[in-house]
């Protein structure tokens, strides 16, 4: 089977579900709105980091990205629809690759646009407090933010394929990001810096100390994502549909 028709079919699946398009819109709306608010609330904090403040909407926004990745896969398990999909495309590896592609591309595109819009919106509020940001730092932040949102969507997609359930994925990831990572991550350095979300967020900061750095941090998140996707693909290929 050729890859292109499979890709077209999977892309059509995303486009024809309003809820999936809605979560992508939510990524943009939540991230931009919270970044704009952060920009308005000022820069009095001694740890103030103008780049992270401008992109801080990602913290709530990533929930929508995770929901997008999880739902894009979980809709297949709805009413055993996966059987119909795999009867149409029995090469499961190829099918999953197409699925991953149609999650990655729109998530990255929306992520980049979102990051850019967030930066603009927050800087409007921050005014001169953000003047120290160089063009390179801002470009790094925007690109890194887009890639980070894509990786989180894919991480959720891989987990959903592994668990065969969007509910299970969301009830695992959302508390993890909101509670575990947030609380433990602030308390201690070291190993928590290598959690999938913490590592990837280094790229959103103007200043950072020690390991991992912005790109190595994203690479750590990418490794987590790759592991989740491989586990999902393994489950899909091995198990009865």
């Amino acid at each position: 089977m050729e890859f292109t028709p499979v890709l077209r079919s999977e892309w059509l699946k995303i486009r024809t579900l309003r809820s999936l398009c809605g979560t992508l819109l939510a990524v943009f709306a939540a991230t931009t709105a919270f970044s704009a608010l952060a920009g308005l609330s000022g820069s009095s904090d001694p740890d103030f980091d103008p780049l992270f403040t401008s992109l801080s909407g990602v913290m709530p926004g990533q929930i929508a990205a995770i929901a997008f990745g999880a739902m894009a896969v979980s809709t297949e398990y709805h009413g055993n629809g996966i059987r119909l999909s795999l009867a149409a495309v029995p090469r499961r590896g190829r099918w999953f690759a197409a699925k991953v592609t149609v999650i990655a591309v729109p998530a990255l595109a929306v992520g980049l646009v979102t990051a850019f819009a967030s930066l603009l919106a927050a800087r409007a509020g921050l005014g001169s407090a953000a003047n120290g940001l160089t063009v390179a730092e801002q470009a790094r932040g925007v690109v890194g933010c887009g890639v980070y949102l894509m990786l989180m969507a894919l991480f959720a997609a891989g987990l959903t394929a592994l668990l065969r359930s969007g509910v299970a994925t969301l009830s695992l990831l959302i508390p993890f990001i909101l509670v575990v990572s947030f609380v433990i991550g602030d308390a201690a350095g070291g190993i928590t810096d290598f959690l999938p979300d913490r590592a990837g967020q280094v790229v959103l900061h103007e200043t950072y100390d020690g390991t991992p750095g912005p790109w190595t941090g994203l690479a750590v998140t990418a490794l987590w994502t790759a592991a989740a996707l491989l586990a999902g693909a393994w489950r899909l290929r091995r198990r009865d549909a």
């Binding site: 028709p5 499979v6 077209r8 079919s9 999977e10 059509l12 699946k13 024809t16 579900l17 309003r18 809820s19 809709t75 709805h78 009413g79 055993n80 629809g81 059987r83 119909l84 149409a88 495309v89």
Partner: peptide, 20 residues
């Protein structure tokens, strides 16, 4: 029940048709 409830019947078939 394999067809997703949020898609239209026509879109459901279009998705299948595209893959083959």
């Amino acid at each position: 029940h394999a067809a997703h409830g949020s898609r239209t019947g026509r879109d459901h078939l279009r998705v299948l048709a595209a893959s083959n």
